[in-house]
Computed example of a mutant assay.
Amino acid sequence: MNPIILFLFFSLFIMTLSLQTEPATNNAQIIVMGLVYCDVCTTNSFSRHSYFLPGAEVQIDCNFRAYVPKTKEQVSFSVNRTTDKHGVYMVEIPSVDGIECAEADIASTCQASLVGSSSASCNIPGYGSTTDEMAIKSRHPNLCIYSLAAMNFRPSKRNARLCGK
């Protein structure tokens, strides 16, 4: 058989297979997020002088376990993210087999740690890591949002004039 005809036949066959629709899956999308701020008055809380810190680098380590009949699947990852202009960092995992948020059959652990500050005047870690997480219910049944506690940097010296004694 002519190689060109054979190539065209296989190309047509592969194109036909790719046009078939796959059944819809109910896999979850997972979002892990948190924020970083500059604690100007070094109180380890957000005050009126605090501000969100853009450009801070954060390391996020997570482990998600799905409890599916006959199997226990696990997804682990470690990534670094940089905060946006609002001091928010975020990791999106588009689809995870076996995890359905609506079924509440997911166990998770996530930790975020400060890696570096973008500000030379606010670069001493305050709350430098977090394991506190809060699952946020979504209107979409397979969207899992995990919000981690806020972390902060602070200046090397407290501004007594601005913050008081």
Rank of each mutant, 00 (worst) to 15 (best):
C62N: 03
P141I: 03
G34C: 09
G34W: 02
N2H: 12
A102D: 09
S18N: 09
D39W: 03
V58G: 04
C144N: 02
P54S: 13
R81N: 03
A107I: 09
F64K: 00
T42D: 05
D39H: 04
F13V: 14
S121Q: 08
F7I: 10
G34L: 03
C38I: 04
S113W: 01
S121P: 01
R154V: 05
L143C: 01
R65M: 08
R158L: 10
Y146H: 11
Y127W: 04
H49T: 04
K85C: 03
A160P: 12
N142G: 00
A102K: 11
T131N: 08
Q29A: 09
R48Y: 07
S76K: 11
D132H: 10
Q20G: 08
T130A: 12
Y37L: 06
P69D: 09
T43A: 13
I106P: 00
E57R: 13
P94G: 06
K157W: 03
M15G: 10
S113D: 07
L8N: 09
P54W: 01
P23H: 05
V40Q: 10
A120H: 05
K157M: 09
T71L: 12
E103P: 00
T130M: 06
L12Q: 11
T21F: 09
S76F: 04
V36G: 01
F10M: 13
G128M: 05
A24I: 14
S119D: 15
N63P: 01
Y51G: 04
D105K: 15
S47E: 12
M15Y: 08
N27K: 11
L143F: 05
L143P: 00
Q20L: 15
V32H: 00
T16E: 14
V96E: 02
T71M: 13
Q29Y: 01
M33Y: 13
N123H: 08
C110W: 02
V79F: 04
T130R: 05
L148M: 15
H86W: 09
S129Y: 12
D61L: 06
A135G: 10
M1F: 11
G87A: 05
E133W: 05
M134C: 07
V96I: 15
S117F: 02
S11K: 07
K137C: 08
L19C: 09
F7S: 08
M1P: 06
L6Q: 12
P155K: 04
R154D: 00
R154W: 01
D132P: 01
E57L: 05
F9P: 01
V40T: 15
P125W: 02
F77S: 03
D61R: 12
K165V: 05
L19Q: 13
